[in-house]
Design a protein around this nucleic acid. Sequence first.
DNA 1: TGTACATCAGTGAACGCGCGTTCACTGATGTAC
DNA 2: TGTACATCAGTGAACGCGCGTTCACTGATGTAC
Lengths: 206, 206
Amino acid sequence: MVKKRGYHHGNLRQALVDAALQLIEAKGPTGFTLSEAAKQAGVTPAAVYRHFAGREDLISEAALQGYAVFADLMEYAYNKGQPSALASFESTGRAYLAFACKYPGHYVAMFESGISVNHTPELAQVSGRALGVLEKAASELSANIPPEKRPPARMVSAHIWALCHGVVELFARGAPGTKSPFPPEDLLESGIGIYLRGLGLIKPDE
Amino acid sequence: MVKKRGYHHGNLRQALVDAALQLIEAKGPTGFTLSEAAKQAGVTPAAVYRHFAGREDLISEAALQGYAVFADLMEYAYNKGQPSALASFESTGRAYLAFACKYPGHYVAMFESGISVNHTPELAQVSGRALGVLEKAASELSANIPPEKRPPARMVSAHIWALCHGVVELFARGAPGTKSPFPPEDLLESGIGIYLRGLGLIKPDE
DNA sequence: TGTACATCAGTGAACGCGCGTTCACTGATGTAC
DNA sequence: TGTACATCAGTGAACGCGCGTTCACTGATGTAC
């Protein structure tokens, strides 16, 4: 609980975003309620309107913060793998999953809340930055493939994005009654490994 | 509009399921409303309780019907590919995407509504049947791989499931403002192709 | 340092709404005689 | 074929609820003098 300083909250805007993220994580994007977020921040629902235009604007801010963290993590992972294109690529894939696991509320707000990335110019920009890292990694990776059997770089990044997203949605959520047959990290690691062999970028015996 | 036969509806139960599917497709699993489904079926909300225990029970029935169709399609696709393990495997992957595209309401009810497959024994059984087809296909496929470099069959099916699901969620939905860089069918086809090469089941020059 | 005042973050009551669910009821249907 | 009756699918009114949002307000904060 954030310490209240008497009448004024001090940092209500961020407290509301944090509460929203927690609720989105717990109840899903549509189970999330403006009133409940306000209550959790120790404040009347009406107070929310001092900081946000409404419910959707609050979700949008949560998604925006998520994209910012996500983009940073992806860039960090990419740089960590440099100068090897392969290492950078694998590193960003791992970072994707790590982000989804560590920031589930942000992840849901970003990808399942129904908020369009075009909702705000800022949102479009920062989501483009995150996706751009993945595409750059895929692009540099593709350069190592003979041109005549090289798939478009954007297709490679789309494949990996889909695989990451699928692993997150199906196997990384702690849905009750759903037992994952393998740890999601292993699933993603091995899936990407097989995929990279298929591209001819890893030797068959590695 | 279903033709009403006077006072009694005739087939209200199925009409409600159909309305629910249409609404789930249009508004998402949580945007779906029991009252609205009743209205669309030309009936008072209270009438729903003659056929279902409540809102969740209605969604559950929609998901159940979806799993049944899904399992049938997967089995059909599997059989069509026989006796080639490879052809069966690719065929089921295609069937997965085709199902998601053709029955989006069912797909959402099944995978995004928050209904657990353990909600009902029937539901668990029929969802197991659908998933079983994919696992069988993966298992037979794995038999063609030298044992020392063979990943577990359940891992292979999990990879493909994740890839299919990711493609559906990210690229097969007509989300406004989201333009898919490639047709989802191409994306899945090429992704599975590369994956199978990685498993050594397709020759590099094919 | 002390006072007057403008600012503006948060209050609390109210709104209209649609939700899921219940209940006693009604009247169409189909069966028994 | 015609009548009496049991069944039960659907009605319509009502409920309590929590939602997002609005509004006039209040009182803590910080600045100007």
